[in-house]
Design a binder for these strands. Structure first.
Lengths: 126, 126
DNA sequence: ATCTTATTACGAAACAATTCGTAAATAAAT
DNA sequence: ATTTATTTACGAATTGTTTCGTAATAAGAT
């Protein structure tokens, strides 16, 4: 089982999911749009992620190109499951209700959620 | 602003939310239903939480009684918001859909969620 | 008052995450 | 070939969390 990514690691994963396999340089550039991080800091974290098995890499000339080894969906599922267990007593209902309450969602989004809900309800009856 | 609780701190908060203000002893006993933790470990973490302002305490005889200084709802909101931003691109819809997909919810729960959804939709139209 | 027991306080160790300085390696340019 | 620029590797410092051993403290029992 892959270890739970730290906050810093998750930020790097997000960039890799979004822009695809990348060098340390481009990841660091992307990180620096949001906050100051030194190049060697990003490098070090990505090297550790490689050791942990969160990333793979291939040599291309003098640089390494890093790939995420965990899918975005898988990470979302893992993190959400964990939060549900540790903060919402394992209840999807509690978590969803709080998420609905937290931020105003558009009417379109609410409709899509309702559609999905109906679909699951139907499946449940089989 | 209160700092984000660590995993260990959250486990302690959960117990305090559930059973109300408690001594280190009863918190530690509750923790040990799930996993082995030494008494002084629990004590130390709760002392640090007191320093951070996550807990308050009052002296009662020779012991201290600890109270959570963050409400369960507040912590849930905080943690959920953070996860939404860092792993779901800030989209409540994505998060909710994944939560619905992750675990089978009962028909009753689904109905309650739908009811809440309708209520929000109605409010949105005002 | 002394002994026993439980709690707290203190300090240190182990571990992990983050940060950065500096050196080594590599490729490209001239 | 030498220089220049970039990347990687290495190591160390810093910070935070978790753990526990041990000593000090306080209460209760006799």
């Amino acid at each position: 089982m892959l270890p739970k990514p730290t906050d810093g690691e998750l930020a790097i994963l997000r960039i890799l999911w979004q822009q695809g396999a990348s060098t340390v340089r481009t990841v660091n550039d992307a990180l620096n749009l949001k906050r100051d991080v030194g190049y060697t800091t990003t490098l070090k974290i990505m090297q550790i992620m490689f050791e942990k098995g969160l990333l793979d890499r291939e040599k291309a000339g003098k640089t390494h190109i890093y790939h995420p080894l965990i899918e975005e969906e898988e990470a979302q599922t893992q993190l959400l499951d964990k939060l549900m267990d540790t903060a919402f007593q394992g209840s999807a209902k509690k978590l969803i209700m709080r998420a609905l309450g937290n931020r105003r969602s558009s009417q379109e989004e609410l409709d899509e959620i309702r559609k999905y809900l109906d679909q699951i309800s139907k499946e449940n009856k089989d």
